[in-house]
Computed example of a mutant assay.
Amino acid sequence: MENMDLNLLRALDVLLDEASVTGAARRLGLSPSAMSRTLTRLRSATGDPLLVRAGRHLVPTPYGTDIRDRVHVLTRDVQAVLRPQHREVDLKALDRTFVLRANEGFLNVVAAPLVTAIMKEAPRVRLRFAPKPDKDALPLREGRIDLEIGVRGVSAPEIRSRLLFRDMFVGVARIGHPLFLDGDISVARYAACHHVVTSRRGTFRGPVDDALEQLGYQRTVSVIVPGFPDALEIVRQSDLVTHVPRSCLTNLSNDPAEILRLRPFQLPVKTPEIVVSAIWHPRLDADPAHRWLRETVYTVCRKVLAH
């Protein structure tokens, strides 16, 4: 390590991002000649040209292309370790945009009270809610997402998380559905219904199907939608049934008209518990503004979803 200059890591990150010695020099406050000498040192250290001339421009070598994203993430991680922020944050003056990723069901229930809580304490903060097509940790690693709300994946062991709440699937049908006419809902009667399911990947099969199969049953999935609110809207106007996280029904208690049109019920099969967490990259762990954001999300979830 005595021969390793971490300044070269930052220079490599900027050079690969700019693909220009002049552009990199401008960003780092160096002269083009100093930046050129740094590129020479990097070529010597890595044993690869990294950037080569193509006409009037520079283009990365295959090795340069391969390491560009890794270098960017590593540079930010190193900066987070060597320059942690210990100061207190002035929330009234905090001028920052946070990008949160969550599914539609969570946003439908928690987004409004969360925005209210954040605007009350930090009126200059901006929130951008991003879609959640999967559990890929790459946006967290690259800094494109500040905080994710959902079930933690298994592909990124370095990612930090904090439990927000535990949830479970419940069945939902419209009031007056034939499923409610004959007493308890049996597995056979439930499986005989036509179903609408929520799947970001567009798959017909899920944990309910696995549970039914273990009991020797198979259901008919007639519709697939990307979000839980879509499933509830279809169920509200048809004889299809669905299952959603219990938290998705929180807002129904505030609207008597909605209660009269939708009726939840306990599924006749057992499905895995849903563990919903706040998830972030460790480079933001010590950041006071991000720490405040995490605490606010936790507090709002506990208040809104207490059951």
Rank of each mutant, 00 (worst) to 15 (best):
I159A: 03
P229N: 01
A211S: 08
L262N: 06
P268D: 00
L179R: 02
L260P: 13
I67C: 10
T38W: 10
D48R: 06
D17Y: 07
D210G: 03
Q218D: 14
F165C: 11
G206I: 03
T116G: 09
D66E: 12
G150T: 07
G29D: 14
H195P: 13
A188R: 01
R10L: 14
S238M: 04
P226Q: 03
E295L: 05
R189E: 06
T242P: 14
D17R: 05
S277I: 00
T250F: 10
R205L: 13
V300M: 06
V52K: 02
L15W: 13
T75N: 15
L215D: 05
G202I: 10
A54T: 09
L305K: 08
V196E: 05
A306G: 15
A54E: 14
V170S: 08
L91D: 09
V115P: 12
V304A: 13
K135G: 09
S186G: 08
S238I: 03
L232G: 04
L232A: 04
A11I: 14
R141F: 01
S199W: 01
V221I: 06
H194M: 08
E88S: 11
K270D: 11
T242V: 04
R83W: 03
F129D: 15
K303P: 06
P113R: 01
E148P: 15
T97R: 10
S186M: 01
I159Q: 03
S247C: 13
A45K: 12
G183K: 01
T220P: 04
T22V: 08
K303Q: 15
R37D: 15
S253F: 13
P264I: 00
A111H: 09
L114T: 07
R263T: 11
P131L: 00
S186Q: 03
D136A: 05
R76C: 10
F204Q: 07
L127R: 08
R96L: 04
L100D: 09
D90V: 05
T22R: 08
A286W: 15
L240W: 06
V275W: 01
L262E: 06
L249E: 11
L74G: 15
I185D: 07
I145W: 02
A306S: 15
V187M: 09
K132E: 05
V197M: 08
L28M: 15
T203E: 13
Q214E: 14
R43W: 12
P272M: 00
F129L: 07
F129T: 09
Q85F: 04
G227C: 03
D136M: 00
G183Q: 05
H194Y: 10
L16C: 08
V223D: 05
I118Y: 11
A137I: 02
C193G: 02
V81D: 11
R128M: 09
D285R: 01
N103C: 07
